[in-house]
Write a protein that binds this DNA or RNA. Structure first.
Lengths: 194, 194
DNA sequence: CCTTGTATTGAACGGGCGTTCATATAACCA
DNA sequence: TGGTTATATGAACGCCCGTTCAATACAAGG
């Protein structure tokens, strides 16, 4: 057998990335073999190399794609700092819950990236973090927030928000909107918003 | 060669665990081979099996040991809820910074544990989290804290505190004590402490 | 000095790894 | 319809994996 009926690169490429994402997130990059990914898609391992030069690039493309999608999805909010912070909180939690595998992978597999690839992802992440820093900085400038160190506050707010992904389940005790509302309040409290 | 001069099980066992901890934390459980661990200690791979039944148990013992050490090191604070929260924050950040590899490993490698081992670690972690929940619950009862959901607030505070380990460096811009103080304030703000 | 027990080697086992490539088939186009 | 190109196979390459075990070298005690 060789080429299979109804197959095309436009279908196979995304299916490979989806399978790799799922397996990497579930078991870890190092623990997943190219043969497992291929099996998931219904291919032999060799066929994967029509779609990625190697396993490392497959991982990197997943992380880069996620960070770029995240940055593209973010709409810079307008209005007073408190309202903008509220919107950031809602966007961040919402996006993370809707892209749990991507987010998980992007935090867990950084150490498996080659230095150059690592730097590229970190740079994208920093750009995202800076969007929260901008809101917090404006809030301080307008006297709405009481923050000793904007960079630290940025990291702390994001760390708190990221925590949601570790425990939230759709069938859980709290609705998604309750979780969002509570985190809005906590984020405001953290930074001394009046 | 066989037995080497100056060697004894009391020395080799801890050295193996230390090497495994360092390598697992740096590169990930799945990416580290028994041969690499052995080389680090100056042994052949086979010798490791005098000290652990297998690789999985080596990982599990590291995680269990860490969680037990953490629970043993925690002194239940006394006084009003606000003071007890302050002490929890200081203990948690301080302990995490002093045991960065253990903490990192305990979060990253949970998924590489067999179900029974996973459950054991999660149970220990839950016991630790409950100590913060107790403080928050008391604070609510005494009207000192304004918390919609104690369990959610517990997870959020711990997530925020854990974030420190991802960026704090001793040579960094902020001193350890500044970091502690700021996080005390943020933790209090999160839960509406007066 | 010799025996006993501990600590370790080094080879071997079966198997899986990432990657390459000649080959084959399906889809497309003239 | 026939030739070309895109898509995939499946075998092979060299290498590393976790684990076992007989053989062995050393330390300690009598």
């Amino acid at each position: 057998m060789a080429r299979r009926t109804g197959s095309s690169a436009e279908v196979t490429g995304p299916r490979i990335r989806a399978a790799a994402l799922r397996l990497f997130a579930r078991h870890g990059y190092a623990a997943v073999s190219m043969r497992q990914i291929a099996t998931e898609v219904g291919l032999q391992a060799g066929a994967l190399y029509l779609y990625t030069p190697d396993k490392q690039t497959l991982l990197f493309d997943l992380l880069r794609g996620h960070m770029e999608d995240l940055l593209a999805a973010y709409r810079v909010p307008e209005g007073p700092p408190e309202a903008r912070l509220r919107q950031f909180v809602r966007f961040h939690i919402g996006y993370n819950l809707d892209h749990a595998d991507e987010v998980f992978l992007s935090y867990m597999e950084l150490r498996n990236l080659e230095p150059a690839n690592f730097a590229a992802i970190e740079s994208l992440r920093r750009r995202y973090e800076d969007r929260l820093s901008a809101i917090l900085g404006d809030g301080v400038g307008q006297g709405a927030f009481q923050i000793t160190d904007v960079r630290l506050a940025t990291m702390a707010v994001i760390a708190m928000l990221n925590g949601v992904n570790t425990w939230y389940r759709q069938s859980g005790r709290l609705s998604r909107d309750e979780v969002l509302a509570i985190h809005e309040t906590m984020a405001k409290g953290m930074i001394g918003a009046r």
